[in-house]
Design a protein around this nucleic acid. Sequence first.
DNA 1: CTCTTACTCAACCGATCGGTTTAAGAAAGA
DNA 2: TCTTTCTTAAACCGATCGGTTGAGTAAGAG
Lengths: 126, 126
Amino acid sequence: MADDQLSRVFSALADPTRRDIVARLADGDATLGELAKPYGVSVQAVSKHLKVLEDAGLVSRRRQAQRKPCHLEAEVFDLMTAWIERYRRQAEERFRRLDALLAAMDDDSDSADITTHDPARRGAAS
Amino acid sequence: MADDQLSRVFSALADPTRRDIVARLADGDATLGELAKPYGVSVQAVSKHLKVLEDAGLVSRRRQAQRKPCHLEAEVFDLMTAWIERYRRQAEERFRRLDALLAAMDDDSDSADITTHDPARRGAAS
DNA sequence: CTCTTACTCAACCGATCGGTTTAAGAAAGA
DNA sequence: TCTTTCTTAAACCGATCGGTTGAGTAAGAG
C-alpha cells in the first residue's frame, strides 16, 4: 500500500472489523481486551488491526497501568471528507454545466452533436 | 477483502493511482487509453484499476464503437460520507457530553452521576 | 478480407494482508 | 520475588494485490 496518510486512512477503513472497532470507539475509549471480545479472532489479530488504525492516525493510545486504552481521533475523518467533497463537487459542477449546455441546445436545436455525455444516465446510482 | 460495497469503495480509494483516476474523471469522461497515458504502467494495469473502481460502483462504462469511455458515478461517495459523518458526529456528541459532565462536576463537585455515559454500549457498524 | 485501434483475459511473480501460534515484555498485586 | 493480567514481537501460512507479458476479442477503416 502507498505510504501517504490518505491511503492509509482509506485502507484502514476498508476492513469491516476495523470499521466496527472505530464505531465502538466512537462510543467511548476501550482496551484491546475489551475490543477483542466480540470478534471470533485472537487478541493478537485485533492488536494488529489497532496498529493499522493507529498508523492511519485514527486511533491514539496512552499507557495507563498495564492497560493501553484506545481513543478515537475523529479529526482524521476530515482528511477523507475533504477529498471526497472536492471531487463530488467537481463532478456535480460539471454535470450542472453540461445540463445547461444541453438545455441551451434544446432551445435552439439542430447544431452540434453531443456524444460526450448521455443525459439519460444522470441519477443512475451504480 | 470483504465483499460489501462500503469495503469495496474504501479499498478502491486506498490506492493513489485510483484516486487520481477518479480525480481526472471528475473533470470529464475518458477512455482507458487516455487514462493510462500519464502513468508509468501498462494499459492492462490501468484496466485492472478501472475494474476495481467499477466493482465499487464508482465508475460506469458503456461501449461506444471500439472505445468504452469511463464515467464517474459520484453518488457512491454518499455511502462513505454517510458512514464517516455518522461516527464523527457520534464521537463529537460524546465529547460534548463529557465536557458538560466535567463542567457540572466543577460546579458542584461531590454529586456527580457518572452513569449518563455507558462505556459498555455497543455500536454496530458496517 | 485485412489491418489497425481499443480493450480484456490468463498466467505468472513478488509483496503485502489477515490470520494463526508461540514466546516475550511490562506493570500491578500477593 | 513470583504471579497474574494486558499487550507486543516474531515466524509462519494461504489469499489477495499490483504489476508484468502474451495472446485474444471487438469493432471501425482501408
